[in-house]
């Protein structure tokens, strides 16, 4: 018998890698992609980047403009995330097994979160562009809906994980639902929730740049404009500033996390 299991494992593995190889070959064939040329061009890209893609003196004169756009992008991300967090907290209270009042509402809340979470950010931006065209609001709402789904899920898991035992104890003392939430659930889960919020702000600042390309706003749009008009030095300055910002934000949120957790 054990010998059969080993043989079956080996066959399964062969089948899996065979299928993967066929899929890869098929994709390359259909799209006329030349993998050899693809890899050799990476080297050329580096050479080109080193000779064109760095900020020069002229690019530095654009620094204030770019900084302003970057500030817009950051503020929009922070606003979208914090507003989403407030709604996520309410949705999580309804959806969590520990704090829900009613199983049906709980299921509805979790279903909403699940649907929101499973629509990719870029799809949100495209859908919302139909309604609000290219605008700051479109970017804001795309980040808001994406974050709402993710944060609701994260908050529900946090509540269920860290407060279920204390909630049981307070229910047994006859405490009211509001008391339980304010005295047990929030004190236990708030630090973890803030940690999720910081993570989401971090992610959203990265994604906001990409969404800006689509919605024509913020620092993503600056990049698009400079790049398409062959102002590569300016475009590289945009990239550099984004990278520095993201590193700073990440360091800041790590610092806050160390303090609160």
């Amino acid at each position: 018998m054990p010998a059969d299991i080993f043989a079956k494992r080996r066959n399964d593995r062969l089948l899996f890698f065979g299928a993967l190889a066929a899929l890869t070959a098929g994709s390359i064939f259909i799209t006329n992609y030349d993998p050899v040329a693809g890899f050799t061009s990476i080297g050329k890209a580096f050479v080109w980047g080193a000779s064109n893609f760095y900020p020069n003196a002229r690019a530095l004169t654009k620094l204030p403009d770019i900084a302003l756009k970057l500030r817009d992008t950051i503020l929009m991300s922070v606003a979208a995330t914090t507003v989403a967090a407030i709604f996520a907290l309410m949705l999580a209270m309804v959806g969590s097994r520990t704090t829900r009042i009613n199983a049906v509402f709980g299921a509805i809340a979790r279903a909403i979160a699940s649907v929101l979470r499973n629509i990719p950010l870029v799809a949100w931006a495209m859908i919302l562009m139909l309604a609000f065209s290219q605008s700051q609001l479109t970017g804001f709402l795309a980040l808001f809906f994406g974050s709402l789904g993710f944060l609701t899920r994260a908050f529900i898991e946090t509540i269920d994980e860290v407060s279920i035992h204390a909630v049981e104890a307070l229910q047994a003392t006859g405490a009211s639902h509001t008391s339980i939430i304010l005295q047990a659930v929030l004190p236990s889960s708030l630090p973890q929730m803030i940690s999720w919020l910081l993570f989401m702000i971090d992610t959203n600042i990265r994604d906001a740049t990409l969404v800006g390309l689509l919605t024509g706003t913020g620092v993503g749009f600056s990049f698009d404009v400079y790049y398409k008009s062959f102002h590569f030095h300016e475009a590289s300055l945009v990239v550099l500033m984004i990278v520095i910002t993201i590193i700073c934000i990440e360091m800041m949120s790590n610092y806050i996390r160390r303090i609160i957790l």
């Binding site: 407060s163 035992h165 236990s188």
Partner: peptide, 8 residues
Amino acid sequence: HYNLVERL
């Protein structure tokens, strides 16, 4: 498992 609010 005591069921306290551990952070308080």
